[in-house]
C-alpha cells in the first residue's frame, strides 16, 4: 500500500465517522426539549461540518476548501449571536403592550415544544 492511498483511506474513514456523528446530533436537535438545545446542536453540527470540510480539503489537495470552512465557522457564529439577540429579554422592555399586541411573544417564551 502506497503512502498516498493510506492517506486517502485515513481521511475517508475519519470523514465517515464524523458524518455519522452529524446524523446522531441531528436526532438530538429533533428531540431536544428546549430551543437552546436545538441551537446548541446546530452549533455542534457546524463544528463537525467544519472538520469534515477541512479533512476534505486535505483529501482533494485543494487548499481553498479551508476558506469555505472558515466562512462556515463565521456564519454559524453569527447565527447564534442573532438568535440570542432575538430571544433574550431585557428588563426595560416596553411595558403593558407585552401581552396584547406582540405575536412573537408566544414564540419567545415557548420553552417546551
Amino acid at each position: 500500500m502506497s503512502i498516498e492511498s493510506a492517506y486517502q483511506y485515513l481521511y475517508l474513514s475519519a470523514a465517515i465517522v464524523l458524518a455519522v456523528l452529524v446524523g446522531i446530533v441531528l436526532i438530538r436537535s429533533v428531540i431536544g426539549p428546549r430551543i437552546t438545545d436545538r441551537i446548541l446542536c446546530i452549533n455542534m453540527i457546524g463544528t463537525l461540518v467544519i472538520c469534515i470540510i477541512a479533512i476534505l480539503a486535505l483529501r482533494q489537495e485543494e487548499g481553498y476548501l479551508v476558506d469555505i470552512s472558515l466562512i462556515y465557522a463565521m456564519i454559524s457564529f453569527l447565527t447564534v449571536l442573532i438568535l440570542a439577540s432575538v430571544y433574550i429579554r431585557t428588563k426595560n422592555k416596553p411595558p403593558e403592550d407585552g401581552e396584547k399586541d406582540t405575536p412573537s411573544e408566544g414564540g419567545k417564551e415557548e420553552g417546551h415544544g
Partner: peptide, 10 residues
C-alpha cells in the same frame, strides 16, 4: 450567549 438565552427564557 446561549447560556444567557437559557437563563433568560426558561
Amino acid at each position: 450567549f446561549l447560556s444567557m438565552v437559557e437563563m433568560n427564557t426558561n
